[in-house]
Amino acid sequence: MRISAAQRTENENRIRAAMDRLLRGEIPPGGKCDIKTLAAEAAVDRTAFYGTRPYAHLRIEFERRLNAKRAAGEVPDPREAQVARLKTENLKLRERLTQSAQTIDELTDFRTQALARLAAQHEEIVHLRGTAAAANHVTRLPAARTTTIGTCS
């Protein structure tokens, strides 16, 4: 079905208005900042944006403006920004998890070594006490006297 020049101009104006809204971040519920949503918002068939169809130049303009905004660090679609933020946060949390697992492994190794050393020292003390008890040439020292120091006033 052919459309008149006036209808085509009206459609282009609706497309440009929808394009501006989407690029400002006014994304409708369930939509994205893409050609499908642009076509739905402008009430134009999506296929009219591809190939040699009448609005292919507007698709190119929309994609150029969208890429320029992205290159400038602006993300018109809040879901895209949220996905990017969550991916970054996920990566940081994975790094922290890896670091925590490494620290736990190091501390577990340290604990194992410390317990082994304590057990070896205990065995040595038990052995030395047994040796000392068997040989009667060890003189025991008297118990330490506790003295209290008076305070001067």
Rank of each mutant, 00 (worst) to 15 (best):
residue 115 L to W: 07
residue 108 T to H: 15
residue 98 T to A: 13
residue 102 Q to V: 07
residue 115 L to P: 05
residue 100 S to V: 10
residue 90 N to R: 05
residue 101 A to D: 14
residue 91 L to E: 14
residue 94 R to M: 05
residue 89 E to A: 10
residue 108 T to E: 13
residue 89 E to H: 03
residue 111 R to D: 09
residue 96 R to I: 00
residue 115 L to E: 15
residue 90 N to P: 00
residue 105 D to S: 13
residue 90 N to C: 09
residue 85 R to T: 04
residue 99 Q to A: 07
residue 96 R to W: 01
residue 104 I to E: 06
residue 110 F to P: 02
residue 96 R to G: 00
residue 115 L to H: 12
residue 90 N to Y: 03
residue 88 T to V: 07
residue 114 A to H: 13
residue 88 T to C: 09
residue 112 T to S: 13
residue 102 Q to W: 04
residue 113 Q to N: 13
residue 88 T to E: 11
residue 113 Q to D: 11
residue 108 T to Q: 14
residue 98 T to G: 00
residue 93 L to C: 02
residue 107 L to M: 12
residue 88 T to S: 14
residue 115 L to N: 14
residue 90 N to I: 03
residue 114 A to G: 06
residue 111 R to T: 12
residue 101 A to N: 12
residue 115 L to C: 09
residue 88 T to P: 02
residue 89 E to V: 01
residue 89 E to Y: 02
residue 103 T to A: 15
residue 105 D to M: 08
residue 110 F to R: 14
residue 93 L to I: 00
residue 105 D to I: 08
residue 90 N to A: 08
residue 89 E to C: 03
residue 99 Q to S: 05
residue 91 L to Y: 08
residue 87 K to G: 07
residue 94 R to Q: 03
residue 89 E to T: 01
residue 113 Q to M: 10
residue 115 L to I: 14
residue 114 A to R: 13
residue 101 A to Q: 15
residue 104 I to D: 02
residue 109 D to R: 09
residue 96 R to F: 00
residue 106 E to A: 14
residue 110 F to D: 12
residue 101 A to E: 15
residue 115 L to S: 15
residue 85 R to N: 10
residue 102 Q to T: 07
residue 85 R to Q: 15
residue 92 K to M: 09
residue 111 R to C: 05
residue 104 I to K: 07
residue 95 E to L: 02
